[in-house]
Structures are given as structure tokens and as C-alpha cells.
Amino acid sequence: MRNAFSNALVTAAEANDRILLLTGDHGYALFDDFRHRCPGQYINAGIAEQNMIGVAAGLAKSGFHPVVYALSAFVPIRVLEQIKLDICCEELPVLFIGDGAGVVYSTLGVSHQSTEDIAALRAVPQVRILSPGDAHEMKAAMELAFATPAPIYLRMGKSDLGVVHTSPPQLAWGRLLSVRSGSGPLVFIATGSMLNLAVTLAQEWPGSAVWSAPSLKPLEIESVVSACSPHRVVVTLEEHNIIGGLGGAVAEILSQEHPLPVCRIGVPDQYSELCGSYAYLMREHGLDLDSVRVKVQAFTKKHPIT
């Protein structure tokens, strides 16, 4: 997925010298290719994220298309106010890349983990949020982002979980993406790193449908309702706090438009307590396959599907 990101970025920047990459002194190996092929379009803004967002605003106002790269723990969380006032209030074309979203930096602790970024940005008017689920979605998401002159946050989470699609899908703002069709009682909607697990888990409930949510904002009412209405229980999956993310967005729509029980799978409202591998922390937060299976089973007992 990181290769797909890097390739898409280099391809876009080579074709358009108005694209400038700003990094907050992050991306050590990730940008080797970019620095080699587009050296004049690379700006290391130093370990100073607040200023970096303001500089991106100034560059966007003077005709450039800045891409701001940082860990998602810092952009958007550390600089939420700069994103709101300097970028979004003026609807400036700035693409934010939040890398390491979720608990990717499992051994580094809470400072480098990001499970609140979607919730924080969903309440900021004008910003769009992309959360690709595999390398093919990443390529399509980058192309969609560069074709859209607006504030966009692209959330890049755990990147080595394998692909779900066989080729880059056609993405559209606000639309869920069908991964597996089915008319059974369950529908799974997953975003980012949880897409792969959703596809695996759904096989245990024959006939289940699986959708990916690469566009978290906007998220169209019609798309969510048409994906969910043929089913009796909705399961959402995300590597993000269960408050304010994909599950929250789906529940908000369904509660008004087509009430259905929504089982929100995500990080409970808590911080990572201990150090450990990515797999360890995913277990700690109940996001490994076994834990999610148990949660879905319990939910379907409470809300029978037969």
C-alpha cells in the first residue's frame, strides 16, 4: 500500500509541478523515489507541524497544490485548529496524508497512535476523508484526491495486510464500494485496515455482503441505505475509536433513514495500555479475528438474524 501511495504521488507530481510535498521531518525511506524524481517539489518543513499547515495554506492560496505528510497522530490531531481556520475555512486544495493511523506504531505508545482522527475531522466543515482498504484502493484514492481541489485527509493505516481487490476500483466521493455481494441477514462495512478482516469474517456467515468505505466524508445517505436495507444487522469495522468514526457515521444515517441494529466494531474508548506487537495491540482492543467474531456472535444473539 505504501508503494501504491508513493507511486501515485510521484506520478501526479511529475505531471504537475504545482504539487509540492511538505513533510514534518517524517517519511525517511518512503520519499526516496519522490526526492530523486521531483527534488524541487520536496519541502522538509522541520518538526513544526503548526507552521507546516499554515505554510501549506499560503502555498495553496498562491496557486500550488500542497500535499502534507505526517503521522496521523500529528496531522490532523496536533494541528486541528490550523486545518480548520487556515485550510478548511477557505476550502483550499491541500491533501493531508496521515500515516500510521490506528495502532500501527504499537511499540511506541499513545503519542504515535491515532484513533481519534476521523472523529475529529468529521466535525470540521469542508474537509473530505479518504480511508483506503488496500493498495488498489490507495491508488484510486490518490487519483480521486488529486482530481479534487479541496481539503482532503487521506488516512493511511496498517499497510501490509494484503489486497482485497484485484485491480484499482472506481471510487466516487460518498459511495460505499461493493466487495462481496450477498442477500443474507448480515452486512459488513469496513474501512482501512479492517477491510481484510471483514472479508475473512464474512465467510463465516454465508450470504453476507461486504462493503468497503474508502470515502468516510462525504458519506452519502443513499449509498449507506441501499447497502444496508436488504439486511437485518449491520456490522461496521474500523481501527479507530468506536465513537465518531465509520460506525458513528453509519449509525447516524441509519437511525434517521432506515433504522437497523448496528454493531460498531472499533477501538473501545480507551488508550493502549501496554507495549507490544501490532497483533498484540489489536487483540488488546478486541480487533483481532477471534475477538471480532465473538462480538458479532453476541450481537446477533441480542438482535436475532434468523
Binding site: 503548526q50 507546516m52 499554515g54 505554510v55 495554506a57 499560503g58 492560496k61 498562491s62
Partner: peptide, 21 residues
């Protein structure tokens, strides 16, 4: 040129404009 009031924003935007120019 800028949204201000929350302090410490405008200079960075100005710096971006100067760099862009």
C-alpha cells in the same frame, strides 16, 4: 488575507505566501 483571532496563525500563512512568491 487570513482568518485570525486565534493567534499564531497568520504568520505561517504569510510565510507560505512568501515562499510561494
Amino acid at each position: 488575507e487570513v482568518n485570525s483571532g486565534s493567534l499564531g496563525h497568520g504568520l505561517s500563512v504569510g510565510v507560505g505566501l512568501a515562499y510561494g512568491a
